[in-house]
Write a protein that binds this DNA or RNA. Sequence first.
RNA 1: GGCCCCAUCGUCUAGGGGACUAGGACGCCGGCCUCUCACGCCGGAAACAGGGGUUCGAAUCCCCUUGGGGCUACCA
Length: 483
Amino acid sequence: MKKSVRVRFAPSPTGSLHIGGARTALFNWLFARHHQGTFILRIEDTDAERSSPEMIDVITESMSWLGLAWDEGPLLQSGFLDRYRDRAQRLLSEKACYHCFCTAADTSAENDSAFQGGGCAAGCSDLGAAESAARREAGEEAAVRLRIPEGRGVIGFEDLVFGRVEVQSSELDDFVVLRADGTPTYHLSVVCDDIEMEISHVIRGADHISNTSKHILLFEALGAPIPDFAHLPLILGPDRKRLSKRHGAASVLEFRDQGVLPQALLNYLALLGWSPGDDREFFTLDELSDAFTLDRVNKADAVFDSQKLEWMNGKWIGRLPAEDLEQAVRDVLEKAELWDASLGRERRIWFRHVIGLLKPRVRTLHDFAHYGRAFFTDDFVYETEPVNKYLKISDPREKQRMVTGLSQLIQAYSTVDEFTLESTERILRAIAAQHGLKTGAFIGAVRVALTGKGVAPGLFDVLVALGQSKSVERIDQVRRCLQ
RNA sequence: GGCCCCAUCGUCUAGGGGACUAGGACGCCGGCCUCUCACGCCGGAAACAGGGGUUCGAAUCCCCUUGGGGCUACCA
């Protein structure tokens, strides 16, 4: 019988949810979905020093924003401390573990100098039960180490991504499972919980590949079945070092705050280290969970490319219907204080229309506020470059033609009955022709008048979107400046 | 240092002995479209790390070298 799929994402709340962690969460989530399994969120907060409750909130908020819902949890390891102590106690009584009286400072000094091999160099592993007990009774502090079984030989496992991975047990040190203060180390808590939660597949970063042999030893010592393992290649910065703060944005919430869509981030992340095997590039979460299999995960580490993310974000903005973008764009405009809260129904329809105009030329949500500013407020600046190009006319006769053209345009636009794409274009072209104005120059001038920019959606779209009176007003204002 | 892992254009990748004059995507460079920009379309430059094998035949299999990453904590 095939065991049911139960996977977990187990971040430690020592920092915000990183891009690498997000991808691990995503792959676990996809694997669970693909197999109709269970996705568990477990918080590895056994290091009280570095963990913080705020970070747990950040992690859950990040995952919710991404749309990676968990079926069980969040389960905090700090709530299971007894469980780990009990297991350690059992291992102690079975002599699979032993008390080590060396201090942390002792052992780190040893590790710096040379590889010790085997157990604790001070010989704690050979201490008799009586002596060990006596010293502890005398108040000496002791950590608990796992005894690497003598002659265990090679420890190997069949990684679902990397294939066969092996290491000699003699390469392993007797690692600490319980600190002197009675709290578990990572190795113990992960294994205990993976047993307790009946995790079927451990899917995690490749930085844990070397830890896996230790974990296998613990599973064996605890007499528990060993889950399948799948390690994911790491995500690197452009310098091929592990992705971190100094590479710029690295946390999920930062990307959100920079105007990235969750769909785009997820889509991009899915393609980092995994490929569908064909040329498809755009995937929804549903499509991903259909297509996703571990055997298509790559082994090589991947460099994070923010340019491609941005491209993909632009594509997602472009392909999403305006309704779906509405709320996110609203949030951005609100932050930029460009949002008129009193928008009525008609104005909402207009709003969607403007989103539609801006959509194909925008790469992040922020661009709606920057690039599209003139749609939402009269308080915009006239950029010098396009002003110089279209409105600073040195030749007096040329300039006169432009002023006349604009005057006529204002006249015609303010009196035309139907202010439409068709009429605005017909009128403008006719006036340009009539006064010997180059159409491009005339359009350019009007565009600057309306938006302050040399780059904007098609002029007639802009005119209609701004509406008759506001368009005329802005053109007139520029005309007066010209004279 | 020791151990483990990895290696196709700058980047993400397809490729799992002949279908490879190595395909796609981002980025870059040209062109078309056009009122600007973007979108779209067309085209271009750009890679099998090096060396040995195995084989009739290697990007694909093996070995070595080189490069990169990970682990080597009473962090996770």
